[in-house]
Amino acid sequence: MQCPDSLRVQAYLDGETDAVSAADIERHMERCAECCALHRDLEQLRTALRRDLPHTPIPPALRARVMRALDEESSIDTPPRRARATWRTRPFWMGATSGGLGMAAVAATLAFLLLSPQLTSPVVDEVLNAHVNSLLSTHLIDVVSTDKHTVKPWFAGHTDVSPLVADFEPQGYKLVGGRVDYLEHQRAAVVVYRHGAHVINVFSWAATQRSLPGKLTRNGYHFVFWKAGDLQYCAVSDTGWDELLGLVQLLQDLGGRDAG
């Protein structure tokens, strides 16, 4: 025989009661051993569920597949007179800028597909894929903001790391937002910057023992890897080396200041 108040205990646990009945239930649990035990068990169960259940994000391949299906769908319901209809996969915030970015993305894909990269490190491979995907698909930015106080807390809820986030607009690197990507089996944080017409993705994830190259170029994209504390960073872009290293220097200086 179950106490008739057990559903109210559950509602209390789920935060579905107002203050008055919450106090009521608390008083009841002091008297009713059964409900007190129920509350304790349900709390234990919840703790275990939150600890053990994976909050798996959608796999990048499926995300890409869904995006392609969406492209096809949206090209059906718009007039076909726009020749480059399918390239509306550009991130929406780029919409206002010139078509040059779209063309650059086309060229980048072609380069990516035709050159068929021989990559030595799987991490480089993963980062390259994530970077190119971010330019092609609509998944450049999950949280759009130029304010580091918006982007950083957002990462706390969505990724496994808390990276450096700062706006360097005066120096020419404008913070435009953040994104989650799946790298090395982790939810990596990606801070997205604009430098002129270029996008710079700064990936960060919990560093592993794996040794990574400091700098390299693949398929026309420059990569800079560095470690700070227990985080592994990688900045990727098709800007020139000087521009990319400029941002890396700013981030490293900032990291140094924060640490010291």
Partner: peptide, 17 residues
């Protein structure tokens, strides 16, 4: 840029996971 598509991406895709 398709406005409907942009709004869809901004509002719905955050819940893709």
């Amino acid at each position: 840029m398709d406005d409907r598509r942009s709004r869809f991406e901004a509002q719905v895709l955050p819940h893709l996971d």
